[in-house]
Design a protein around this nucleic acid. Sequence first.
DNA 1: CAGTATCCCCCACGATACTG
DNA 2: CAGTATCGTGGGGGATACTG
Lengths: 120, 120
Amino acid sequence: MTERKLSSTNYRNQSFLEEKCTLNELLDLVSKRWFTDVLFCIEEGHNRFKLIKDELKYISDTILSDRLKLLEKYQLITRTEFDEIPPKVEYALTEKGEELSTLLDSMCEFSEMLIPQLHS
Amino acid sequence: MTERKLSSTNYRNQSFLEEKCTLNELLDLVSKRWFTDVLFCIEEGHNRFKLIKDELKYISDTILSDRLKLLEKYQLITRTEFDEIPPKVEYALTEKGEELSTLLDSMCEFSEMLIPQLHS
DNA sequence: CAGTATCCCCCACGATACTG
DNA sequence: CAGTATCGTGGGGGATACTG
């Protein structure tokens, strides 16, 4: 087993803190509920809190807020605050965000091949 | 937003059951603890229950058993039972399993670019 | 408009014990 | 060797109420 792949295991067990999580950390991130939806939503131009909330109509404020923070923390989106009343904030994908979106598209394609037959 | 991407959202909210989950179902799957580790472990030739358990030394029987079942259910691995005493079972990746492993390699590479700076 | 603060619930995970 | 059965808990997720 390669070191690269082992590292993710070690991280999760806090056995070898020097090693970075990377893959598992990324998977934990993108598998959080609504995470990919918010990402795709911003990619398609819904660039404000309310616009995203309306588009993903069942998402809660709490979760949307959290997911936006995470996306920003990992530098997948930028957050631009305008000094206006009422408040105005705009979100946009970064290059890394675009790259992740592309990767998720591949995953999506694969999943469409893998999953459907199980539900038939 | 494309239908393809929306469908995952709808699935999770059980709003439109006709639509398949696919992406989110796949992400839920691969983000389960130890899932990718077991997949990679089998890919690298550790093809029996005990071999995997020894390689991933902190995994519990319960979880390993569950992950193997899931991998088999999604036809990512095959399970071959030999009629011997003591029992002997061998696991091997399918083509779909290999394909998923390749996809995860891309994700891993991306994660190594994305994550490390956050922990420094 | 763009969020925070609280409280609550459920289930994935894990530890332990057991079996054909 | 290759698992299953059972039980306990921690944290992610969601509903609701509130704020600058």
